[in-house]
Design a protein around this nucleic acid. Structure first.
Lengths: 221, 221
DNA sequence: TAAATAGTGTCTGTAAGACACTATTTT
DNA sequence: AAAATAGTGTCTTACAGACACTATTTA
């Protein structure tokens, strides 16, 4: 019985909610798009395998990445090569630019989550894994500060709000969002810098705060 | 690489929050207490393996059982036999009475969760798995109706409240709990029966309702 | 009638959700 | 000055949390 890790890597870029995909070089599913992943080495911890694949297959370092175990997938026929149980990980990263394809892939690309879920493009059971990862991310934005992991620092409150809009498919109200985020202890830390990159009045820039949980949660309603 | 399932099976009996343990017959850890579990068969789905172990090792049928995947554990040295990745499942069951030991165990017993977590009695990394399962159960009681899976039907509101007290280590306020549970659509369904098994004024009996999520949640505070 | 448990109503405080105007910049 | 975006305050409503008394049974 073989064990793999598969990665749901999510980010937001210019208002679009994106997942990282690779085009497979080898069979099975050669030429098809899939989630990055690969076999766990004989003496390697699961999370180490996930970190390694993230780096090897997509050139993403683990420093600014939130990485958590999602769940495992083990239907007997999910891989035509034989019995393969996959432990899926969810990674949330601030937009790292264009991905670089690793050795097992002939291309890597960020693709919109919605179109990946609607079309049947992904190999294996990766559409189901992606769906679970996306749902986990959507849910966790409600009761954690993980939304800030999807955006490069420093960011404005409205840029952060746009991240929530992209992930949830619906923008939170600007005034309520501002009140919630800035009054939640340790969610974001103000700097004394501002930016005018959005045009108009300068917006204050923030860094991620130390808090991980958001209490009480912010509901998508 | 081998794949096993391990089971965190939880129930509440006379106000005590209990986990199912077995005493191992074979090495490694022969004679030690452990969570029930075993190897996944070559053509068996993960959840089927969990259902089978629940039945084989503990004599618990899947009919009245809530079963969900917890997470996977794969540290390279977690099993002295070699590389074994374990997919853990969480089961919540209404008190099924004394367990019957299966073939791989020379005893099976319900033990208080707190003492299992305090003492170092469990084999492998099962203490960590149990801790994660218990935390999942405690969290899910907040935003689902799963508390009702820990008690046999029919039950009174106060019996259900005692379940929450046992799991959380703190009884919710009787009046607020009654209001919350009975006003939440589909959480519990009243019957027209009553019981006096608690002594005092007869209490109305309820069955589990169809709702799975509790909105808004009931916090342990 | 005393003891035991079941069942309910009120008040207060917190925070979500809906909503509109003022502030500060660039062109 | 017009256009663009940032930033904030008020009102209403929902509901959690604290709290005490009445109701119905058995012994």
């Amino acid at each position: 019985m073989h064990v793999t890790v598969d990665l749901v890597v999510l980010t937001v870029r210019v208002g679009e909610f994106l997942a990282l995909t690779i085009r497979r070089k080898l069979d099975p599913f050669a030429g098809r798009w899939a989630l990055p992943g690969g076999f766990v080495l004989e003496r390697e911890d699961l999370v180490d395998a996930a970190v390694r694949e993230l780096s090897e297959e997509a050139g993403i370092g683990s420093m600014r990445t939130h990485l958590e175990q999602l769940r495992s997938y083990g239907q007997p026929d999910r891989d035509p090569r034989g019995r393969v149980v996959s432990v899926a990980y969810l990674a949330l990263v601030p937009d790292p630019g264009e991905p670089t394809a690793g050795s097992d892939a002939d291309a890597a690309a960020w693709k919109p989550v919605d179109s990946l879920l609607r079309s049947r493009t992904l190999a294996f059971d990766h559409a189901a894994i992606l769906r679970d990862g996306v749902e986990r991310a959507r849910a966790k934005l409600e009761y954690t500060s993980l939304g800030a992991m999807l955006i490069p620092e420093p960011f404005t409150i409205n840029e952060l709000r746009a991240v929530y809009g992209a992930v949830w498919g619906r923008e939170p109200d600007a005034r309520n969002f501002h009140r919630k985020v800035s009054s939640a202890e340790g969610f974001v830390e103000p700097t004394d810098e501002t930016t005018t990159r959005g045009g108009g009045r300068p917006a204050r820039l923030y860094l991620r705060g130390p808090a991980r949980l958001l209490h009480p949660p912010m509901l998508r309603s």
